[in-house]
Amino acid sequence: MSTQPKISLLRRKLKEEWLFDCQCVRCLDSTEFGSYFSSLKCDCKGFFCKVVKDDIKEKLVCSNCHLEKDLFSQLKSETDILQTIQNLNDEVKLLELEETLLKNKNYHKNHYLLFALRRRYLDIVDIKSVDDLRKVSRLSKHVIDVLQLIEPGCTKIFGRYLSLMLESEMRLLTDAKKSNRIDENEFRLRMKQVIQGRLKAVKLQSNFVK
């Protein structure tokens, strides 16, 4: 095991691609506020979130078992995957790619590729059915969960996805009520909670929020 100083994977990426050594709070935290947003997952359930360099080459180090592994070829392939995600305009293909990534043992629910994919889906989705509403609700929830880790606080982007999630949930509640899957009391209670959340989402998307 190398005894050389370790740096976060995110800082290493920024230095390589943008030629500067970032000193922000998130970059100095190798876990990226517990999200492991840029990190691959180890078989032991830890995360390859630190980089160490010996006399020969760089390696990634697991946060749990401390295994050192060269995964940089996979990291480089992520650039192509991200480009594919950004160029995809097909909802079905995006969901198929999500399933493929989740089957890869190195990716996890908070990984930035899955975050980008879910945002892309929400950007292009044309809601035509109750099933589409369920997908929007699920994917919005994932995006919100990650945002709360990597960008905590009141932000416009958080407000946007909160609004998407709550709008889909409002429509799902209405459908459930019409289909008699929930009674009037439950419908009113849950709808009240959704409306309160939507008021918050509207405020977050105002010009007074960054």
Rank of each mutant, 00 (worst) to 15 (best):
R198S: 10
S77C: 14
Y36S: 02
C24W: 01
E169A: 06
K6P: 06
S2C: 11
N106D: 09
L133C: 01
K177L: 00
L133M: 01
V52T: 10
V130E: 07
H111P: 15
V143K: 04
K105I: 07
L9F: 11
T79W: 08
G153Y: 11
L97W: 02
L101I: 13
S168P: 04
K57R: 13
C27F: 02
Y36C: 03
N64R: 12
R134N: 03
P152F: 03
S137F: 11
E184L: 00
K53I: 02
K156Q: 15
K50P: 08
E91L: 11
T3D: 14
S163A: 09
V209L: 03
K59H: 03
S137Y: 10
C44D: 10
H142N: 15
V125G: 13
D183P: 05
L97E: 03
L173W: 05
H108K: 12
N89S: 15
K6S: 04
G153P: 07
H108G: 01
V51K: 02
H108I: 06
F158K: 08
L113A: 10
R119S: 12
S77Q: 09
L19N: 12
N106W: 11
S179A: 15
F158L: 05
K69N: 12
W18A: 09
L82F: 10
S140D: 14
K76Q: 14
R138M: 14
N110H: 13
I144R: 02
P5Q: 07
V146Y: 02
D132P: 12
R120I: 05
Q205N: 15
V146H: 04
V51C: 02
E17G: 08
K109D: 15
C42I: 01
I124Y: 12
V136D: 02
L172M: 05
R198M: 14
I81N: 06
H142P: 09
K69V: 12
R198H: 14
F33N: 04
